[in-house]
Amino acid sequence: MQKLYVNPLPVRIWHWTNAFGFVLLIATGLQIRYAGLIQLVSFKTSVAVHNWIGFVLIGNFFIWLLFYLFTDKIKVYHPELSPMKYFRASFKQIQFYGYGIFRGDPNPHHVSVYRKFNPLQSMMYQIIMMLLVPIQFFTGVLLWDVARFSAMIDTFGGVRVVDTIHVLLFIFFCGFIIVHVYLATLGHTPLAHFKAMLTGYEEVEEEPARGGSL
């Protein structure tokens, strides 16, 4: 087994803060939205906690953004510019998760310091980090003080439109977190990827690696 340092400290700090923050945001978000069904915490406390965590995660987002903007590690997010190459690699990856993994085939993606994401991860994380997460933060800030941002809210079609976008993304993140955790267990051992995100070192077999996380 070869050990590769693929998750530097700022990325790990961002990841785990983000992970726990998102879980808390989902929990408080459920409490806020379903106050009549769930009575674990008061509505007022849930709103206060939800707002605070939201702002912490906005700050945390900038740790991630600045780290990648000012280091060469940004290469892990560089898209594959050849569509043919990209679709071929994506198809292989889908084929692996949908069939090859059952037969014990090797993971077609080989992890390296500058290529830690497989094509599906690369596309998904770019969409999430550069589009969905900022939209979620932005709509969250608008809803945090509806009167202060009323002009902007009206520009986007009104408070109901902004809230609907926020809730749709909330639903997406609920699903994403469950699938993300499952795919993280598909390393060469069920805890391999979790350990890698704690220590920073990914254990990579000399042979093509099995599994990957999304």
Binding site: R160, V161, L168, I171
Partner: peptide
């Protein structure tokens, strides 16, 4: 679009979508 109260005027379709996605 200009009126929304958390919880009480939530869109039912989104509730079903949440259950489906989870």
């Amino acid at each position: 679009s200009g009126f929304y109260a958390i919880g009480s005027t939530r869109i039912r379709l989104l509730d079903y979508l949440l259950v489906l996605v989870v």
